[in-house]
Design a protein around this nucleic acid. Structure first.
Lengths: 97, 97
DNA sequence: CAGACAATTAGCTTATTAGCTAATAATACA
DNA sequence: TGTATTATTAGCTAATAAGCTAATTGTCTG
């Protein structure tokens, strides 16, 4: 049930979150993803590796390119994780005014 | 609607997540929180400052102690944020590629 | 005000990580 | 094959952040 630390670490970087956002609409190749950013290609490649390690995306070779695809499983677990916080923790938290 | 980067950064550290978990059951003083960890008190104090900056907790002086309290507002927004991902992006299939 | 207690800030060291360029691996195709 | 294309890995530098101890701020009480 505990979300691995790697997931939070992966989500901590804005570029990686942007990559995930980009992948919402369908799989993309590594180069295609890199083309959307000003960073160098190897830099994006390493971000993709971090996302892969966190199991937030999956990679699949398709001929000469490698398709990256969003894996929503961990997202779902993260959301459930936080929802459970409220269910078990009750309404102790203060609403900001 | 965009979740500030500070929130993700704050959640990226295991100690800080543990602090939040601790605060689920009610407000606690800084020293009370620090007593739950093996880290030095100033270290926990700085973690608390990070959580405060991210508006994940609120601090309120209560006599000689300072009470830290979970602020669920940002959590709620984070959850809604991710739920929206699925609603608009659909299930990681090929729609609207 | 002085002293005790609660908590943060300052200053430093070390570890992690994002970014780059250059080199390497893997694949497609003439 | 050989070469172009696609992507990752290696090796480095700079920035960020976590951890510590020591010093400082703030608050209560005698």
């Amino acid at each position: 049930m505990a979300i691995p630390n790697a997931v939070f670490k992966a989500l901590a970087d804005p570029t990686r979150r942007e990559i995930l956002r980009l992948l919402r609409y369908g799989p993309r190749s590594s180069g295609d993803i890199a083309a959307h950013f000003s960073s160098a290609w190897p830099t994006i490649s390493r971000h993709l590796a971090v996302l892969r390690d966190a199991e937030l995306v999956t990679a699949e070779r398709n001929g000469s390119t490698i398709l990256y695809e969003l894996d929503t499983t961990v997202f779902q677990e993260t959301i459930e994780h936080f929802l459970n916080w409220f269910n078990t923790g009750g309404s102790h938290g203060k609403r900001r005014s």
